[in-house]
Design a protein around this nucleic acid. Structure first.
Lengths: 195, 195
DNA sequence: GCTGTTATAGACAGACCTGTCTACTACAGG
DNA sequence: CCTGTAGTAGACAGGTCTGTCTATAACAGC
């Protein structure tokens, strides 16, 4: 049983993934070497390769961890926003703003992952896409609940506004982007309802 | 005069920059090595280092070249759209769609550059930001010409819709994003005019 | 024809990369 | 006590990376 590329959880493994997420977020995936992660985590190289088959697998684990954390945070924010689907959507933009204003904000790790691993078959690319698809599904559902005519299109438009807000907030160092995007989303929703 | 890090143009230099742009766009900045670019361009290493001080400088030159090409293409598209500022904006989304549908489309090289060189002091990061700022200025001007009340906010919102469209078109392989974004922009403009 | 410029090929240094391997330690459960 | 598991340090292989250097060729303008 010593040959199982994908071992179950463990404290060391967890810490490794956390450290990897932190460093890759700060410095990028190719730019940060495995040795850097190991040194920061205080973990031996063989421990890494007992838990993961390759660096790419570690990256995927880091992306998945972030996905879990995000989903959890979002769930809370949505629950706190009550039952109205539009209120939930607006709350999403407020969550984004606090994220933009946090000092660890460094843009979207999924967009970056897709950028650094541009081929569809690359594992980090797939993991990034999976996250974005899940988010889109959530948007679609909320739009459907609002009962607008073309919920699908509206969902894409709001998704684009969100992606754009992240890009703008990161590149222009402009956290206010969240509020502008929120207002835009409200306008789009109102227009979709009027149809 | 043999010590001038920044030499003027030359056929070799041009070809080098073109090749670099091509390869970095396809594979990413860290993932593609200088030797790969040199081999593809059929140029000696010393020729590169006679024209550029470092790989980062070559990247900046590639980003600038793309900026020039984009500006040229955009200028044509805007001129063809007539005098109406809204028509010009709409034309921008149409241009985006043909870009999205081109087989070389690989997302935005500036977003990727900012992602791979996350520190503000990194030269590629600065070059990428400069491009985005120029684009934003163009949007601002068009919005002002439309005479809406809050032209600045509208410009940011349209900019976000555009960035989002690029991200979505790339990650989800969805060129239709351009039309959804165009419709969203039209809605935002109409709402801003109603104010 | 001579001179200065531009480019060439290719070796090279020195760093860094991922991934493997070995030999050793710590420790928990039966 | 003994055995299996998880982890450790560190050496190592084999590549790849950027950037430098040398010696040589092609060719322009005077």
């Amino acid at each position: 049983m010593a040959r199982a590329t994908e071992k179950p959880t463990s404290a060391k493994r967890d810490h490794l993934v956390d450290t990897a997420l932190e460093l890759f977020t700060e410095g990028g995936y190719h730019a940060v070497g495995i040795d850097t992660v190991l040194a920061r985590a205080g973990v031996a190289k063989m421990t890494l390769y007992n838990h993961f088959a390759s660096k790419e697998d570690l990256i995927v684990a880091a992306l998945d961890r972030m996905a879990g954390q995000s989903a959890l945070g979002l769930e809370k924010a949505l629950a706190a926003a009550g039952d109205d689907p539009k209120a939930k959507l607006m709350a999403m933009f407020d969550s984004m703003e606090t994220w933009f204003r946090s000092k660890e904000f460094r843009g979207c790790i999924y967009i970056k992952a897709a950028g650094e691993y541009p081929k569809k078959k690359d594992k980090p690319h797939q993991a990034a896409l999976a996250f974005k698809q899940a988010r889109l599904e959530l948007l679609r559902e909320l739009c459907r609940k609002m009962g607008v005519k073309d919920a699908d299109t509206l969902a894409w438009q709001i998704a684009m506004q969100m992606e754009g807000a992240i890009v703008v907030a990161f590149m222009h160092a402009r956290p206010e982007a969240a509020q502008d995007a929120k207002a835009a989303a409200a306008t789009l929703i109102a227009a979709a309802r009027r149809t």
